[in-house]
Design a protein around this nucleic acid. Sequence first.
RNA 1: GCGCGGUUAGCUCAAUUGGUAGAGCGCGUCUUUGACGUAGACGAGGCAGCAGGUUCGAAACCUGCACCGCGCACCA
Length: 751
Amino acid sequence: MEPLVCPAPFLKPYDPNEQEAGILELWEKSGYANPDVCVEKGVIKADAEAYSIVLPPPNVTGTLHMGHAAMLAIQDILIRYHRMRGLRTLWLPGTDSAAIATQSKVETDIYKKEKKTRHDLGREELLKRIDAFTDESKKIIIEQVKKMGSSLDWSRYAYTMDEKRYAAVMEAFVRMYEAGLIYRGDRIVNWDPKLQTTVSDDEIEWVEQTTSFYYLKYGPFTIGTARPETKFGDKYVVMHPDDARYKEYTDGQKIQLEWINGPITATVVKDAAVDMEFGTGVMTITPWHDLADFDIAERHKLDKERVIDDRGLLLPIAGEFEGQHIKKARPLIVEKMAAKGLIERVDEKYVNRIATNSRGGGIIEPQIKRQWFVGVDRPFGTPQGKMTLKEWMRAVVEQGEIKIAPERFEKIYFHWINNLRDWCISRQIWFGHRIPAWHHEPRCIPKPGRESDVEKCIPIIVSIEKPTCQFCDAQYEQDPDVLDTWFSSGLWTFSTLGWPFDYAQGKPKPGSDLATYHPTSVLETGYDILFFWVARMVLMSGFLLGQVPFRNVYLHGLVRDGQGRKMSKSLGNIIDPLDMIKKYGADATRLSLIIGAAPGTDLKLSEDRVRGYKHFANKLWNITRFVLENSEDKYGHGVSIFPEDKKLVEEAEVVAKEVSGNIDNFRLDLAADRLYHYVWDRFAAEIIEESKPIFKAGGEAAASRSATLYALLTTSLTLLHPFMPFVTEAIWQQLPKKENDMLMVAKWPTS
RNA sequence: GCGCGGUUAGCUCAAUUGGUAGAGCGCGUCUUUGACGUAGACGAGGCAGCAGGUUCGAAACCUGCACCGCGCACCA
């Protein structure tokens, strides 16, 4: 007898390329990635519990890399699983403008092609060019994200620089300013002389460099430095108050001594920050260009003198070296010091840490600058009473309102908070959210008859709209700076869900996305941006909504090459996810990034792994062929299931429970591994093999077994769907009997 | 310097929280039997970095050491 079910689609090996585009189209047409559609079509109840993830928006500068692929695979698994479990599930996509990185890239491109700088082009033209670039980039990255099978709700797509997000950023800034959390002040910041902008502490990358370390004669003392070119203004000599070697010197004591450019008066300062064990236990300070020195100067109210300008050129304080670049001046200065007998000895092999801008900039030169800051030690009102941003960030994790997985990252998070300084949020670039502060420039030109009110003019106003002056005709000019890209990223969980539009009287409007989906369920990202982003979201959400932004943080590891090296162009070891999709399919690519990837642990990926999982997709395909060829129809209808077959079904239920449990605990690796082995080693290798003689014998046992295999197949497909959505959906579409015409919204086997 | 990971088969990594070690790839032999040769069957291969300790029992827990990686840090 011929099988009643046509196995034609299964005659060839599984070819992902042949199937994936069609499946993507099917999903897209269904609209099921949008929870509203799911509710409309009745696959999810309107009052179902919500489950939401906001996609960490990929930068528009790049194309999809394996890190993105891993992130997409993990989140899509969580999303598909919860959707199948009947939760009102939203996965919200977006892209990120990546301010500095993007501007820097476009500027470089323009300079290469046209030999023009941004100043040649002007602000408006540069922004136009950047927009053109990002529009193109966005399309590319979105297409690539889709190819991974990501069931994102594109109807809610957001871009960090679109109108709604712009409005959210402005609103946030103004509110924080009014609450006193944002202030403008002169503080030491990380200055990038190459990009001519400040950079936040977290964007700095420390590079080790072997340099010379000089021991200099400073009056009766010996001081050490790796940077002699900064020492012109050093007029304080600092030592530990308990250092017995220097007890003859008293705090505030003046000492005359010969220095680089002649005699100076130095002042003794006693401060416990000095490490008695290091060097001679004595140091001089350069408060304008060193963070630690700045702090000491602040504590003792000392003078701060600037030595180096924004471009890295020495100022008049350097005397004959004025106008020279620090790099070129150093040997000359050393030479002069040596000639004056100020150099006692030199350590040639000193390993120094150099701060560089990880966003493609230059070597950081600390500078004191007037910038905008978020004060992390300033109290504000929260649902738990008054606390500072730091306290809030610590409290919500300590109290378990936010759970971080793997747990060890909580320690790292606390450690970071303890060392957190006020966050410099202004950047001197053009691409980004412009600061809504308005300066009264030029100075007042009084209105006729209001001359006496000139004093009342407010020099700086923070507001979204351009203000006008009541007393004079001068115009307010907007602050030229833009905000750190992480400022807007910090709003991401709620700016994408309708804040501030759907927020009034201190709460979200009922029925709005903000009310339904915030706090989000999970924030899933690489551990490398725990501080940049995760902590900033906690901060912003705490102040602006009095809420946590997410209940769980799940951190995945970095994807490295087969030998554990970072993937990079220069090493030529990049595995391109799009290549892998083309060669082995999106399902195989996904599995290779999931199985064996323990949470928070780096994953070493080789092409062999991906190939291995392509075989698995094929296995599933062939299992299906066998099951359909031996379909129940062949052996008669209305079968009763034999006890040994019932056992098989129960066994599958146990697997389903284990898989669910592992997903709930973010152990996707274990869940996928369990399924892999169940399907291959148990279902295919044992159950199917056992079934062959049963089918040969025919009769009721065969009918029972046939129905059972079919049930095991559909259960396996369902369980595997979050992990390998394409091949499972492709098979599902060919099945003669199924409860739901789309596996994407089929019911998960456990409740 | 402080802190956190890691060290298991030739390679890359697991083992759901103490019960005589597993997978993928690679390797060897066999098999074209009613899904699958992108396969199947069978097999070789690990005294678990080192030294101690706890335990009836440890890869897992404790101590120390070594090496690798990472995070943080005001050694000027």
